[in-house]
Design a protein around this nucleic acid. Sequence first.
DNA 1: TCTACACCCTGTAGCAACTACAGGGTCAAG
DNA 2: CTTGACCCTGTAGTTGCTACAGGGTGTAGA
Lengths: 137, 137
Amino acid sequence: MKIGELSRATGTNIETIRYYERIGLLKAPARTSANYRAYDDLHRTRLAFVRHSRELGFSIEEVRSLLDLVDNPERECSQADQIATRHLAKVEKKIDQLITLRGELSQIIGRCRGGVAADCRVIESLADHTMCHRDHV
Amino acid sequence: MKIGELSRATGTNIETIRYYERIGLLKAPARTSANYRAYDDLHRTRLAFVRHSRELGFSIEEVRSLLDLVDNPERECSQADQIATRHLAKVEKKIDQLITLRGELSQIIGRCRGGVAADCRVIESLADHTMCHRDHV
DNA sequence: TCTACACCCTGTAGCAACTACAGGGTCAAG
DNA sequence: CTTGACCCTGTAGTTGCTACAGGGTGTAGA
Ligand SMILES: [Zn+2]
Ligand SMILES: [Zn+2]
Ligand SMILES: [Zn+2]
Ligand SMILES: [Zn+2]
């Protein structure tokens, strides 16, 4: 399988595949006589794992650790679960922050009565944090 | 006011202040005989506006447009309100995405029964998107 | 046989929004 | 006269890609 095929098979940009190889996330595949990368099904599976993990929001370093466990299947899975649990906690924290932010933004937008910028309550609110209800993280 | 003072007064990293000047978000201040930046209260107000907008999640380019309105107070405020409304829409979309993601992650984590990585349902779930309930954006 | 075209290669630079040096200069206190 | 806290410029690093530039390869049609 050449890189274009792998790209289509996994929905991954060609440049991204080469990038993953460069940073050592994917092993370098064999080369054809024309120096083209030649992938097999294991490469495809591995790349799918990487892409899926990325889509679920895991960082490259987290994916690296997860792949490490894939390669050492005799190890305890607790590390994988820890990575996932911590990631979930981060997601939950982010949700909380964004919900607070949403509230603040709606308040600010609700203050606008139209007119010129000099009288705009939105701009005024941006200039003055004391009009906010909470601190921003 | 020297840069360190402005930094403390606004809770902004010194490097960030210089960065804002470099990208043209803040006007270059006067210089002392020792070539130190000398800020006045207008600079402080402006930086506070920038920082507050950034804390509320507006992009640098959005902040640039907002500052443009601050500098042209005779213009209609509709542009400011549009920027804020669009930003709110983005935040809401992000919240939705994260909530979906949170659901998916909890499901995945809930599948773990401990043991070796070879049998880990977390790793299995990462390898196989068909175990997911929705597509990831 | 020539040539058009779709591929592939490497290497480097760009994006956002900072942050962190390295390697200097300035200035007041002790 | 030296110590320490500041300040300066310029450049490189961060994360996770993406987009070239400037080449090589392989195949199908005229
Ligand atoms: Zn308004
Ligand atoms: Zn605020
Ligand atoms: Zn497990
Ligand atoms: Zn999935």
